[in-house]
Every structure is written in structure tokens, then in C-alpha cells.
Design a protein around this nucleic acid. Sequence first.
DNA 1: CTGAAAGCGCTAACAC
DNA 2: GTGTTAGCGCTTTCAG
Lengths: 347, 347
Amino acid sequence: MNIKVTIYDVAREAGVGIGTVSRVLNNHPSVTPETRKLVKDVLVRLNYQPHTYAQRLAKRHSETISAIIPFFSTYFFVEVLRGVQDKISQTGYDLVLYGVNDPQQVDSYIIRALDRGRVDGILFFSMQLPDHIVPRLRETATPIVLVDSSSPDFDSISVANAEGAYVATNHLIELGYESVGMIGANPTSNPAAQRLAGFRRAIESHNITFDESIVRRGTSSRLDGFNREAGYQAMTEFLEDGSEMPKAFFVSSDVQAIGALDALNEHGLEVPKDVALVGFDDIELARHVRLTTMRQPMYQMGALAVERLLARMGDPALEILHTTFSPTLIIRESCGAILRSRITSGK
Amino acid sequence: MNIKVTIYDVAREAGVGIGTVSRVLNNHPSVTPETRKLVKDVLVRLNYQPHTYAQRLAKRHSETISAIIPFFSTYFFVEVLRGVQDKISQTGYDLVLYGVNDPQQVDSYIIRALDRGRVDGILFFSMQLPDHIVPRLRETATPIVLVDSSSPDFDSISVANAEGAYVATNHLIELGYESVGMIGANPTSNPAAQRLAGFRRAIESHNITFDESIVRRGTSSRLDGFNREAGYQAMTEFLEDGSEMPKAFFVSSDVQAIGALDALNEHGLEVPKDVALVGFDDIELARHVRLTTMRQPMYQMGALAVERLLARMGDPALEILHTTFSPTLIIRESCGAILRSRITSGK
DNA sequence: CTGAAAGCGCTAACAC
DNA sequence: GTGTTAGCGCTTTCAG
């Protein structure tokens, strides 16, 4: 019958006031060891459970962190979320998930999270923070950290997208490919735009002229174009429009690379023999399709995001911090590096 | 300045009582259109946001559903969770996630969810409901639905594991494989045990004697053995223990099959030429490694679970329902069926 | 150290 | 219809 035991019941049963019960509940120092023990006994005997919402109302905070996240589109989020969850589960906080399927939801979710007291902090993923939200976030002083996204006004954790794209493209060029193309994503997405910039810089630093026709993207705008169909479409376009096609590609994301791979296969082309590919993310699949790619430390990003958020919740005056991880080049077979080294070494 | 506007502020500003404000907030019918409009205007002008926890305390329910789930181990959960999330986002409910990394956490999470008022309903995934929890669940009359797990006492959504394993194994046998082995998972896990039973039934229904040595499992008990390492280990054992090995295998899950595939490759064996494999789940990866497998309708299971939970929350007297989905055989290349048909048809 | 009392912000029953 | 009031269960002064 724990169905409704309140601190009043406990207090009566223990012959003390509710204040005292509350004090032992909150480990307040000024309670005699004896009364403390007395109350504690009654607490367990009655199987008392605190009413979370009453506590939250009285305490003015919720012990809750909400994550606003483009929902489970890709493995990237799954990994990041694992980091988040692992970290949070070490604290007493609750994690409430707002999965965004439609950009329109972002607003209402943030507003909801902004309800005074509803959450103590927000983790905001991979999306552009709506402009009109920024002032409200400031006014309400809601702690927030952006992951895979950024804004000068708030803490953020991200990946050096441009740098990663540069490294990937460079790798291809140094492998000897004279023309390398790119399969991009929706340029309104920050990571997508940055990856494009990195690609371009790599191209130009090798004195190759950057020609618009060398980068394509599918029309599917779902998830900013970071999806298989978009990759498939873009590669198909390259394959079928008649003009000469690069023999190597930097692809904005692994999922897209998978789509490109499918398109290539359908056209009887082999990777890396006929076409070389380098992706971005290092999702689980990448390893199995032997995709060379830029690895992002997803799990760590999630874990760090929580740490940072907790820190900011603890001290709102903290300096704003922007952390950037550098992606690492993971060489597998799709880029042709291994093939080449075999040839070179005469194997 | 929405920082602290309460219904009192709104009431004063609108020149009405707080009761009236509350009424328009809750769309109570007995408010004149005029006052309603008046109040609504003030509401938006002051940018009023309700305090969630105060509402929950007063209303005695939380508009919250919690999901207790073995965390993000596999793609299976990601998909199921997508179904859950999509469905929930159509309602006003919050989803709070309790990711279980260590079985010990289950208890504390359930207890937490049982706090009076903390959640309106629980979704419990893929784990055995601890026995001592059952009576408490009943007493507190907390709505709960089990997914990929079951108990006579509560609603459940699951998959016909035994049947699926039977179909998979049978498929292999009918393809002409005379001995087929199995890579199992931890038999303390319900799905694992059921899949083993289905396998066994298939074997015996073809008058093949079932020999213990024909099923192996890795020692990694993480996630009940449904992980890549376990599959890798089990297959390696088959390969290296000297005795003769089956040429076809039913593997308890796709992730394990991936591991088995890796082991096979390392030993220079090709699938399906040398060894045939059928998995279970149809995770995203399966398609790309051309794995024949039993598909579970993961997304639907999640969505249905939410529907059922909502229904039960609406009417606790509802008949307890156990829904079982039948997995479908998805034929790809790993089982050798396509290879064979080519040979047969002379291509 | 501890009891009593005043909120926390909202809902709902009760009068008018 | 609408204002007033009494909770919801807990935390936190404030006396003593």
C-alpha cells in the first residue's frame, strides 16, 4: 500500500513534524542522529516514495534534462545519444527526449522545454537554433548546449567539419586521383556547408579549379540530405548525365556513401577499382562496406555535452566554451589506398 | 519577460479571477466567448507559460510515459524507439527514457517510475520483469506494456520468435543443407530461448537428431549475447575446434551474424559459397551485407506499444492483450538461395 | 534541533 | 458564468 503515503503520514507515525521528515529526506544536517534514525525507519516501514512533482514545484528545479534531436535518422545520433545517456544515468537526472521529425516541431519543443521549471537544461542537436528563440533562451537563462551545431551565444560541441572534409579530399588527391568530385548535402545545414568549404579548399590548394559541376546533391531534403536516397540520386546523376565523371569522390556522409555505392553497383562499377569513395562519420555500417571515412567521436561528444551542461547548470557565470573535435581519417578499402599499396609493393 | 508570469498575473491584468484563467487554459466550456477572448489576449501578451509541475501536482497525472530499455545496444531498439517516439509525438505526452546498461538499474528505474504521479504509463522492453515488482505494479495500478517480453499479467507486444527460428531453419534445410548449426544467445533471455526452441523443432521435424554440439554461443553475456563479439566467438569456435562443421547456420540475430561473417572471412571462407547464414531481426546492416534474415516489424511494434498503453491508461479495466507479430523471411544472398537458383536455371 | 506556517503554481469544488 | 477557497505534497523560513 504505498499508494499514498505522504510526509504527513510519516510525520504522524514517527511523532514528529513534517519539517523534520523533509529534513531527513533531504539530508539536512540539523537533525539528531536519533530522530533521523527514527524517521528513516518509519520511511522504509511505510515504503514512502516522494512525489516528484511536488518536490519539483517546491524546489524550483526539475532534475531533468531534455534533448532535442532530429530523430534517429542516422546512426550518428544513436551513438551520441548513448554517450548522453551513459553520462546522465550516473547522475540523478531524468532524460526527456524530444525527437524532431519535422523542423516545425523544434519551436514547440523548445517552448515546452522553456516552461519555467520543466527542465533544468537543454541539449540541442544538429539543427539551427531558431533566431527568435535566442533572446528567450537568454532571458530565461536556460542552460543549453549545442551539439553538432553552434552559436556564439551558447556552449557548443562540434566537429571540425571543414577540416575533416579537407583531409578526406586531400587523401584522395594524394592517392593520385586527378579529379575528385563531391556528393554534398543541403547547404542550409551547417555541417553540410562546412564540409563543402573544406572540400573546396582542398581542391583549390592543389591548384585544381573548383567547378560547380563537380559537386552534386540529391533532391531529397529529408534530414538535410544526409540520407541514402540523396547519395544514390546524386551518384546516379553523375553516372547518367553523359559528361565525364571523376574517378574519386568525397561524400558528405556515410549514409550517402552507401547510397552512392548502391548506384555504382547498379551500373556495374566497382569500388575502389573503378571509382574511389571517402565518406564522413564512420557509422557502424562503414566498417562493413569497407568505407574509408572521417571518424567523429560521437559517443564522446554526447558524454561531453552532458558534462558541459551539468557544469553550466552548476555555474551559469561560466565562460562560454566551444569545443571542436577533429575527425580522424579511417582508411579502409573504398578509397583505393590499400589496392594501390599492394600494386606499388608488387603484391 | 516570461520569467515568472503566473495565472495570478494574468488574472489581475485581465481583471478576472484565477479560476477563470484556469478555465480558459483548460478549455472548460463555461466561459463566455468574450471573457475567453479577453483572457487569451492577455495570455499571449504576457507570454504566459504554464508551470508543468504545478499542473501535474494539481491534476494528479503527468502526461508522461517512460520507456525502460536496454540501451541502444542494437538497431532493433533504435527502430522500435522510432515507432514509439513518432506515436508519442502525436499526443501531448513526454517521453522519458531510462536506458539500462546494467540489469541492476532496472529495479531503481521501475521504482522511480512508480513514484506516485511521476509517470502515467511505462513501456518495458526486452527484459524480464523482476518478480518482486509485479505485485507493486498491480497495487499501484500503473499501466504498463511489455515489448519483446511478456508476462500473463500485463499487455505485451512481441514477435513469434520460435516460429521465426523455425521458418529460418526450415528454409536452410529445404535449400538442401543436410546439417545446419545454430549460433545462439544467452538462454536466460526469452527471445533467445524461444529461437533456440524453434530451431530445434525445425531440425527434429526433418528427422535430424538434435545434438547439443550443433549450437554454440559466445561467452560475451553483454546484451544477452546478442552482439557482434558473441557471434564472432561462436563461429570461431566452430571453425577452430577441429570437428566437422555444418555448412549452414541459423544465427539468433543479425548482429551476431555480422560477427560470424567476420570470423568466416578471416578464415578465408565465403558466404554463401562455403557457408550459408540466416539471421534474425533485419537490421539496417543486413541489407548491405546481403544477409538473409527474419524481419521483425520493429517500428510497428513501437507504435503499437504506445497505442496499447494509451488505451490502457484510458481504461484500466481493458482486457489484457498479447499481440504477437510473425517475422517474415527476407531472402538475400547469404543463405545461398539466389546462388542456387542461378545454378539451377543455368545462368 | 524541531514544529508550525507560509508558500510553490495550478485545478476543481463550491458558492453566488 | 465567474470569483473564492481549499487542497495537491513538498521545501523552507521563522520562531522557539
